[in-house]
Amino acid sequence: MSEETPLDTARLWVEFPDPDDVERGLSAEEGADTVYRIDLTWLTSDYTCIFGNGCPGIYADRPDVGCCALGAHFTEKADEKRVAKIVKKLTPETWQFFEEGQKENGGWTEVEDGARKTRVHQGGCILANRPGFAAGAGCALHQQALRDGVDPLEHKPDVCWQLPLKRSYRTVTRGDGTTYLEVSIAEYDRRGWGEGGHDLDWYCTGNPAAHIGTRPVFRSCENELREMIGDRPYEELARHCEALVSRSRDGSAHRRLLPLTVHPADPGRAGR
């Protein structure tokens, strides 16, 4: 497995105001300013999830569950409620730990440090089917979404479908005292996991082994990005990303290998 790249490298970012705010003529004084801050280097990278295709897992002793070794924390009550409805649809044929998940003293959730999350069972999320299970390995919720013909983000916990994208907010004060909400979309690197992220045995976003996708992240994760920031902001984001890619004669997109636009984990970066 290739060596992981450093966390801190030079990157190209772009900021743009919320297109809806611009259209409505809303000003900072009215308290409606929103500015999106986008990591173009990440979103135009060739990263792709390699679960089931060489992923060694975040812990060496639990490779079969990929990054699902710790369970998923719910972002809010609505998140848990939505997932609970899908769990009720699962059966012993679609969920390996169906019986364990029904136990009154066990179930499929647990509380850790005061926060509710999916329960860890046998070294991984209880909703993660293991290799050898008849329905196939991987998230039972993800698989249910495919059977239902919907995008997996409709069935999975927020933190699961958002990975490897990280959305963060902060209030920024300008020199004239006005403020705006900054919404950042960036790479969910090791630091996104908190202090424990540095202790993971392996992690994908900074590893060349996972930068083998056929589409840039802003296209492969289009549905997730639209859900996170909305359609019009996504279209503006995509416009800026497209400006960094060129199209070959067959119409496929390729990033221009220029300084700051190439993710450090890109296998083709060496020597530039």
Results as ranks from 00 to 15, higher is better:
Leu12Gln: 13
Glu80Ser: 11
Asp199Lys: 08
Leu181Phe: 03
Val262Leu: 11
Val35Ser: 00
Asp151Pro: 14
Gly194Pro: 11
Pro152Leu: 04
Gly192Val: 09
Arg119Gln: 05
Cys139Asn: 06
Arg191Met: 07
Glu80Asn: 07
Ser168Tyr: 01
Ala72Thr: 08
Arg11Trp: 02
Phe133Asp: 05
His198Gln: 10
Leu146Arg: 15
Glu104His: 06
Ser168Pro: 04
His155Gln: 13
Asp18Thr: 10
Lys88Tyr: 10
Asp231Ser: 09
Asp8Arg: 10
Cys55Leu: 03
Glu30Leu: 14
Asn223Val: 08
Gln144Thr: 13
Asn223Tyr: 04
Ile58Leu: 02
Pro267Ile: 12
Ser45Arg: 09
Ser220Ala: 12
Trp42Glu: 09
Ser27Tyr: 05
Thr173Lys: 08
Phe98Arg: 10
Val172Tyr: 00
Gly268Met: 07
Thr91Val: 14
Lys166Asn: 08
Pro208Asp: 00
Phe98Ala: 13
Thr178Cys: 11
Lys117Trp: 00
Phe97Tyr: 15
Arg116Pro: 04
Val217Gly: 05
Asn207Cys: 12
Gly177Glu: 04
Glu112Asp: 06
Glu104Met: 11
Asn53Ser: 05
Gly230Met: 13
Tyr169Ile: 00
Met1Asp: 01
Cys67Thr: 14
Thr261Val: 12
Gly101Ile: 07
Ala128His: 13
His198Tyr: 06
Leu40Ile: 12
Glu99Tyr: 12
Arg130Ile: 08
Pro152Arg: 08
Trp193Pro: 06
Asp201Phe: 08
Ala135Asp: 15
Trp42Leu: 01
Arg82Lys: 15
Arg215Val: 00
Glu4Ala: 11
Asp176Gly: 06
Cys160Val: 03
Thr118Tyr: 09
Tyr59Met: 05
Pro164Leu: 10
Thr75Met: 07
Leu70Asn: 15
Glu23Cys: 09
Ala134Ser: 14
Asp21Leu: 02
Glu187Ile: 00
Val262Asp: 04
Gly106Asp: 01
Arg170Gln: 01
Tyr169Arg: 09
Met228Ala: 13
Gly57Met: 03
Asn105Lys: 14
Pro208Lys: 01
Asp266Cys: 01
Gly271Glu: 11
Cys49Ala: 11
Gly197His: 00
Tyr234Val: 12
Glu222Thr: 00
Ser184Leu: 01
Ser184Asn: 02
Cys204Ile: 04
Phe133Thr: 13
Phe51Asn: 09
Gly57Cys: 13
Arg232Lys: 15
Arg62Asn: 12
Glu182Cys: 03
Asp21Ile: 07
Asn105Asp: 15
Thr178Asp: 08
Glu30Trp: 11
Val172Asp: 02
Thr214Met: 07
His155Ile: 09
Gly107Asp: 02
Ala253Lys: 11
Glu242His: 15
Phe51Gln: 07
Ala69Ile: 06
Tyr169Phe: 14
Phe97Asn: 15
Asp113Gly: 12
Thr173Glu: 06
